[in-house]
């Protein structure tokens, strides 16, 4: 889908123009020994229930988890593991690995030395490239070396 930007020059003439990122095609590709093309595929390793967190919820301690893995392969879902994945949707989950519908967001700002500087509400940056008022050049030119 094309993205637009509403641009104006210093005389106030404006236009909505399409902009896009510049892609650089790779120079090299990986092929099989007989020269056939390959591609990369995302696959599923395991569901939340089969993860460390999921097994801890089910079996409570390491000993029981180990036992479940040895007896029943509890860390693998034979139906799902290895399944090819296409699109997935990001969600937030609670400590019981259930989806959370209502969330609160905050930002924690750290100093370069890793100490916490502040906690604050998430700053919302308002889009300004396709608003009623176009992005306007002030007409000033700067030397490239600056």
């Amino acid at each position: 889908m094309s993205r637009y930007i509403n641009l104006a020059d210093e005389k106030g003439r404006n236009a909505e123009v399409i902009f896009s990122g510049i892609t650089k095609k790779p120079l090299v590709k990986m092929v099989t020994p007989d020269g056939k093309d390959t591609h990369t595929q995302r696959v599923l390793k395991g569901k939340a229930e089969n993860s460390c967190e999921g097994l801890m919820l089910q079996f409570k301690d390491d000993e029981h988890i180990a036992e479940a893995i040895i007896k029943n392969d509890a860390d693998i879902d034979l139906e799902m593991t290895g399944r090819f994945l296409e699109e997935t949707n990001k969600i937030y989950i609670d400590k019981h690995l259930k989806p959370v519908n209502k969330i609160s967001k905050k930002e924690i700002v750290y100093n370069p030395d890793g100490t916490q500087k502040e906690e604050r509400a998430v700053k919302e940056t308002i889009a300004n490239i396709l608003s009623e008022n176009p992005v306007k050049s002030n007409g000033k030119l700067f030397a490239k070396k600056r």
């Binding site: 967190e53 990001k90 937030y92 609670d94 400590k95 690995l97 989806p99 969330i103 750290y110």
Partner: peptide, 29 residues
């Protein structure tokens, strides 16, 4: 320095991020 986003649920508990598969029910971490 850097900024981390902290997500909490209605009870103030920290949330994890996961992904929902296209079947609409399977959650992965």
């Amino acid at each position: 320095g850097y900024i981390e986003e902290s997500i909490t649920d209605a009870n103030g508990e920290i949330c994890l991020t996961g992904n929902l598969l296209d079947d609409g029910s399977t959650i992965i971490l």
